[in-house]
Design a binder for these strands. Structure first.
Length: 931
RNA sequence: GCCGGAGUGGCGAAAUGGCAGACGCGAUUGACUCAAAAUCAAUUGUCCGCAAGGGCGUGUGGGUUCGACUCCCACCUCCGGCACCA
């Protein structure tokens, strides 16, 4: 008997060997077809969790498979290292974001190595490294120089208490999560990219093999609509532009609604209405966009006192403001046609505004604005619409609808409007009022003009020696050495203190991987010419409309700025077809689901200390039994007692039984008592409540892959993640079900390390094993290609079962045994890279298994001679008979009708119909007898 | 609310419109053992039946089809996203 299976020693041994031999170093080789496999890079939150393994190891298995199929495969890894959590650590634990981030990356690199993935670490890219963000800044500059970057106004979450901008995540129920103080929406001048300029090209998915839902979501996100822009005028003559998809209904526009933030609101508002208007504007500033646009909500609004003139019929119509009109969509103003739009209808009914029907639906009594019960946006004939009367509204969009075409022509003749396309998509707001992000290389000169930092001075480096204020305000705004600079003339000037959205960094990381140390351009064109575009991209579907759309925009923008031109020329020189080669960054995209954990209650605690406003600064926190909460609450009225619903660093949100959660900040040096955890306790050991827990960086994670690897080995963890879930779906973690995979891996070890069989072998069994072998080759290959990892492993397990039985019964010769093991190890190599390498060596095959070719499927060998014919009665199986595989319809039908099963239910009677279904793709043939 | 997705045994799941539950977990029985674990052998959707056999079954209700987990319509529940978490 050979050695016991000890994954811990085997795995580190081979990882070191592969490293030493640079087995996964991917270099340009024009003699081989390339495959760029990419999986979304992690945020360095501190610890790799099982979700990272779930995302990365199946992708690795597939990349390894492609390699064995003969491709030159590049599979890089890096870190998306800028972002909010690092600043939270700085504010709450007084650790510099850089220190925190780099320490986390160091730990995560080790953990990533334990996966045994084929990452090429020489290609590692780290977005917070100056050598990386130099080029992020450079990209900003070329956008700026080419009118793709501009300054505009946008709403931010503003905490008047902290005088700081907050992330959406930091706002809970309209309040700042740290202080519990209200947050308002405030307009601020910020940087944008012209995202919308590419809206139409982004709607073209023809060059991409992406999941249908992702494409649909992107299409809806972009939200292209055809219609017209129409200019209304106030009585004072100020123009109010609106966009509408139904310009034909303009005769029914009986009032206008402006977004409360619309610049004309102050001017239009009459003195009598001013007080109400101001109060309403203030109220709306506290609402989120989601709340404002929820269609099930009771409409609210206020009359400004002002009137506009309808350009087609000169009607004097009141101007209102309402929260359901957003300043960020369209023009921030609408013409309200209550007879044709349900939201406008509800608004008009609620506030007693006039309703004029303009489209008369067919076969219905004449509409009356006084009595109609809902808006009509369907087909019909135009009425009450001057020159449009009698024209058909056919329900189509844009000019395909005669009434819309007529309306556009009429408006254009009047110079009151123009045909137009509108997008729901907004330009990309890239400004963040934060420290830990890529600086924006812009200088504000004393005279108010802007200058880009010269290329020679890039990157603008984030200063290290800054202090973080507890407000969370970016130190860049008050750190003088950074702030003060000079312009190109040497005059004193100020640096831009906004940094860039981290989506900017992650929009081009796949390019930095090409040549992370290259310093003459963002990437080496020689590498790009060979490797681009990404062939297979894997990641979560939660990125469907943001990251995945930003990265497409980025790619198209830099393509048009000639960033790929050198690479294109080199590629053409090597005979690659370069037409449209750089139009899309990722050709194939597949989503994996998320690994969830079981629902878990948070600790119930008693927290006491100093109360400040709604917030408790606790210097003492003790975990108590759930049933004690009520009693202790009575005894200690000043303390906060309840379950921890959320914890971010040292900030707790506690459910104390009241209507709102209580915020508790555990001060530095506080005493934390957790009876179930011996020794001294700290705030990080407090457990928060987790609803069918989603494992993400912002939450504590119960499943630690390191422990699993220590217990079972990386190969088993990899295989379990591939076997136990539908990869596209994910699901809750289950620690029990891993044992099936443990048994499988152990079986493989025992089969391969056993003494070879001595017998002569049984030809029938050997033929059966050969057949199953080839069926398995087909299934494993198909499974890996289609990301059906669970069926891949199921096929390998089934083969193991056959093989075990044949060995047990001593039906295999040594040659047949050896061939079966060889093929099986090759098929398993992408999934379990370490054990297969070890057993490959043990069986005397040459190093490395990962440099071997994929077994070749032979359809003839996979075929069997007979098959089961399924006999069905009205579509339900009632019996089986053995028939030759290639049986024809006639013979099958006769055999079926003659079978015992058919005789039983036919009773000598006649079948109404007999349907033959030939056996395809390994499925049995069927005969359906209809009676 | 809007957009997208998912609902199948006790559990994870499988199934180009063609035998629903492959492959596993768990459970039950047996073998080995003083015993347990491990391992091996067998059973395992559910109901009726001694059995042969039959009825019912893929969230709910309808429809298309010789045949529906799969396609269509309506609904329910859960998950992801909604532009400053990444």
């Amino acid at each position: 008997m050979a050695d016991k299976y000890t994954p811990q020693t085997i795995e580190t041994k081979w990882q070191r060997r592969w490293d030493d031999d640079k087995l996964y170093r991917s270099t340009v080789d024009w003699n081989k077809p390339k495959h760029y496999a990419l999986t979304m890079l992690p945020y360095p939150s501190g610890d790799l969790h099982i979700g990272h393994w779930f995302a990365m190891t199946p992708s690795d298995a597939r990349a390894r498979y492609m390699r064995m199929k003969g491709y030159n495969v590049m599979f890089p890894m890096g870190f998306d290292a800028f972002g909010l959590p690092a600043e939270n650590a700085a504010v709450q634990r007084n650790i510099h974001p850089k220190t925190w981030t780099y320490a986390n990356m160091e730990r995560m690199r080790k953990q990533l190595r334990s996966m045994g993935a084929m990452f090429d670490w020489e290609r590692e890219a780290v977005s917070c490294d100056p050598s990386y963000y130099k080029w992020t800044e450079w990209f900003f500059k070329i956008f700026y120089d080419n009118d793709l970057a501009y300054r505009g106004e946008a709403l931010v979450n503003w905490s008047p208490t902290l005088q700081t901008v907050l992330a959406n995540e930091q706002v809970i129920d309209g309040k700042d999560e740290r202080t519990g103080q209200p947050v308002v929406q405030k307009l601020m001048t910020q940087w944008f990219f012209r995202y919308r300029r590419y809206a139409d090209e982004l709607l073209d998915f023809s060059k991409m093999d992406w999941p249908e839902p992702v494409k649909i979501m992107q299409e809806n996100w972009i939200g292209r609509s055809e219609g017209a822009r129409i200019i209304f005028k106030t009585e004072a003559g100020d123009p109010i532009e609106v966009f509408t998809t139904r310009p034909d209904t303009v005769w029914g526009a009986t009032f206008m609604v402006l977004a409360p933030e619309h610049p004309l609101v102050a001017k239009i508002t009459t003195n009598a209405q001013r007080k109400d208007i101001n109060a309403y504007v203030e109220r709306v500033a506290r609402e989120t966009e989601l709340e404002r646009t929820a269609e099930d909500r009771e409409k609210t609004g206020i009359f400004t006192g002002g009137y506009a003139i309808n350009p087609v019929n000169q009607a004097r119509i009141p101007i209102w403001i309402a929260d359901y009109v957003l300043i960020s969509y369209g023009t921030g103003a609408i013409m309200a046609v209550p007879s044709g739009d349900q939201r406008d209808f509800e608004f008009a009914r609620k506030f007693g505004l006039e309703i004029v029907p303009v489209v008369q639906p067919d076969d219905q009594p004449a509409l009356d604005g006084e009595t109609m019960e809902a808006a009509w946006d369907g087909a019909g004939v135009m009425i009450n619409s001057g020159p449009l009367n009698g024209i058909r509204a056919n329900g189509e969009k844009g000019r395909k609808n005669p009434s819309i075409a007529a309306a556009i022509d009429h408006l254009e003749a009047l110079s009151a409007g123009k045909e137009a396309v509108n997008y729901r998509l907004r330009d990309w707001l890239i400004s963040r009022q934060r420290y830990w992000g890529s600086p924006i290389p812009i200088i504000h000169c004393a005279d108010g003009t802007l200058e880009a930092v010269p290329d020679s001075q890039l990157p603008v480096v984030l200063p290290d020696d800054v202090e973080f204020m507890p407000t969370g305000r970016s130190p860049l705004t008050y750190y003088e050495p950074f702030l003060n600079t000079v312009d190109s003339e040497g005059r004193p000037a100020k640096r831009e203190t906004d940094t860039m959205d981290t989506f900017m960094c992650s929009s081009w990381y796949h390019l930095r991987y090409l040549s992370p140390k290259y310093d003459r351009a963002p990437f080496d064109p020689e590498e790009a010419a060979y490797w681009l575009p990404v062939d297979t991209y894997t990641g979560g579907a939660e990125h469907a409309t943001m990251h995945l759309l930003y990265t497409r925009w980025f790619n198209k923008a830099i393509r048009d700025l000639e960033v790929f031109d050198n690479a294109r020329e080199i590629a053409a020189g090597h005979g690659r077809a370069v037409d449209g080669l750089f139009d899309e960054p990722m050709l194939q995209m597949r989503n994996q689901g998320q690994i969830l954990g079981e629902e878990r209650d948070g600790d119930v605690v008693v927290a006491s200390g100093r109360v400040d406003g709604n917030k408790l600064f606790a210097d003492y926190v003790e975990v108590i039994e759930r049933d004690q909460a009520e009693t202790i609450r009575g005894q200690k009225p000043d303390a906060v007692v309840g379950q921890i619903k959320k914890r971010t660093e040292n900030l707790l949100q506690i459910d104390d039984g009241g209507d709102n959660l209580r915020t508790v900040e555990v001060v530095a040096g506080a005493t934390v008592v957790i009876p179930s955890i011996p020794g001294e306790n700290n705030v990080n050991q407090l457990r928060q409540h987790l609803d069918v827990q989603r494992m993400s960086k912002s939450k504590g994670n119960v499943v630690n892959p390191d422990e699993l690897v220590a217990q079972y080995g990386a190969d088993t963890v990899r295989a379990y993640l591939m076997f136990g879930f539908d990869w596209s779906k994910g699901g809750p973690w289950n620690s029990q079900q891993i044992s099936g995979v443990v048994r499988w891996i152990n079986d493989i070890w025992e089969i391969c390390t056993a003494e070879p069989p001595q017998g002569a072998g049984d030809p029938d069994t050997e033929r059966m094993i050969e057949r199953r072998m080839h069926q398995t080759i087909a299934k494993v290959g198909e499974g890996l290609e289609s990301f059906s990892f669970n069926t891949t492993i199921a096929a390998l397990m089934a083969f193991r079962n056959d093989l075990k039985a044949a060995i047990r019964d001593d039906k295999l010769s040594e040659a047949a045994w050896r061939d079966a093991l060889k093929q099986m190890l090759l098929l398993m190599a992408p999934i379990a890279p370490h054990i297969t390498e070890e057993l490959w060596e043990h069986l005397g095959f040459p190093y490395s298994i990962h440099q071997q070719s994929w077994p070749v499927y032979d359809a003839e060998k996979a075929k069997s001679e007979t098959t089961t014919l399924v006999i069905m009665k009205n579509g339900k199986p009632v019996g089986h008979i053995e028939v030759p595989v290639d049986i024809e319809a006639e013979a099958a039908q006769q055999a079926a009708l003659a079978s015992d099963a058919a005789k039983r239910f036919l009773n000598g009677g006649k079948a109404k119909k007999v349907v033959f279904v030939p056996g395809r793709n390994g499925m049995e043939p069927k005969v359906n007898i209809v009676v």
